[in-house]
Write a protein that binds this DNA or RNA. Sequence first.
RNA 1: GCCCGGGUGGUGUAGUGGCCUAUCAUGGAGCCCUGUCGAGGCUCCGACUCGGGUUCAAAUCCCGACCUGGGCGCCA
Length: 456
Amino acid sequence: MRGMMDVDVGKLNQMLRFLQSCRRYSDEISADEDGREVCVAGWLHERRDLGGVLFSIIRDRGGIVQVTFRRETVGEEMIERARGVSRESVVAVIGVVKADRRAPRGFEIVPRTFEVLNEAAAELPLDATGKVHANLDTRLDARFMDLRSERVRNIFMVRAEVQRLAREFLNSRGFVEINTPKIVSTATEGGAALFPISYFEREAFLNQSPQLYKQMMMASGFDAVYEMGPIFRAEEHDTTRHLNEATSLDVEVAFADHEHVMSLLEDLVVFIYEGIAEYTERKKMDFRIEVPKKPFERITYDHAIELLSEHNIEMEWGDDFSTIAEKTLGEIIGAHYFITDWPCEIKPYYAMPAAAAGCDKDASSERCNAFDLMHPRLELASGSQRIHDYNLLRKNIEMRGLDPESFRFYLEAFRYGMPPHSGWGLGIERLLMTMLNVENIREVILFPRDRRRLVP
RNA sequence: GCCCGGGUGGUGUAGUGGCCUAUCAUGGAGCCCUGUCGAGGCUCCGACUCGGGUUCAAAUCCCGACCUGGGCGCCA
């Protein structure tokens, strides 16, 4: 291999090949490497010019590292060049590690070469050092720069880790990852609003949930599947906990009842929390992760109504919980919990009635084997045992005023050997925002889509 | 969809009828400074969302539009 000093930094792609071969992130370098030559590349985070000595702070994915320019070590030409570089410009440095107690991390880099790969314009749309507060709206407009700040970068590193942990957990339990269409011909469940799109000469929609497809996979013999992907809701809600494009982790398991998938969900959530607690600790991230305790409390829908009544919140049997009711229940319980045994009428048509599953001896029971996973702040997931009987499912669709013909592709799967099955869908953004104690759901998705925002 | 706020330099703010050729911080341009670590000192630069109205006088009051924050509703 050629020595570092042989690189002709004037030739861009030679420089890039060189960076590929030896570039290191700033957190990988320490004072222990005193005297060793290293190369780093990143953004000019800050510059402190003291006249005869100039400190350039370079930031990359690993954090920050100080590069020290002194007249006697780097020469007048380089120090002048370093002085003229605007903040947030992309730079590359080859230099020698010098242990020095005066330096921020106990060492600094004395540069041999200092190259500006791309100059940043002034003034910046945001302060990437975090000294000046910016509104979320301003930050999202300049999200590429917002993502350069440590806190925001950490949120998305945690998000990636959450998704990795979810896959690790489900893969280890024998689940098969699937991908289902996001462009569909019909509403999944009839209720929520859909985004219409133009599909050649026909109208189509963005899918609001993989529900129908993951159920059809149960008839395929795949037994246990999951999908992590986007879901689209055209609801005009405008809150800190709703998105029009969100990420859902959907799971479906054959030969399993709702109790089984509730335990699975509980195990998954705790597994992710434990993994993230370890991850943020190891990466020295400034988050306090409180791992929830198993088992999560299970309260029935009826019991929830009683609890609310004791706190002077009255609701009719058959109503869904209002925002204030959800928050009050959260305060009463103070931890993750399940709400179970919901009225059929406020759950989707595919939810298994308790009577049909033999869970309720009363044949006229109006309850179903559905559940919601709640965080004290908001709903995280909902699921149920599903109806696997063709005739019952078809009857339910009709009773909701939906046209069974438009569900034909789905219903067919129930006629030729559909096993009993259960599943749930978990909102990844909601899991993240509650785990990291973030107020606004937009903080935990790179480029949020909400009622007003379509760019960037 | 309903209710309540807000729109002032690149960013975050102060200012609620005349004291505003508009405050402070950050930033940008420049000068000084050999150990900064939210560096420091000095000089300069840069803004009242748009349209209409009230008034002798509007950043400030009224109306409308647009943008925006929060709460509720809606939401497998």
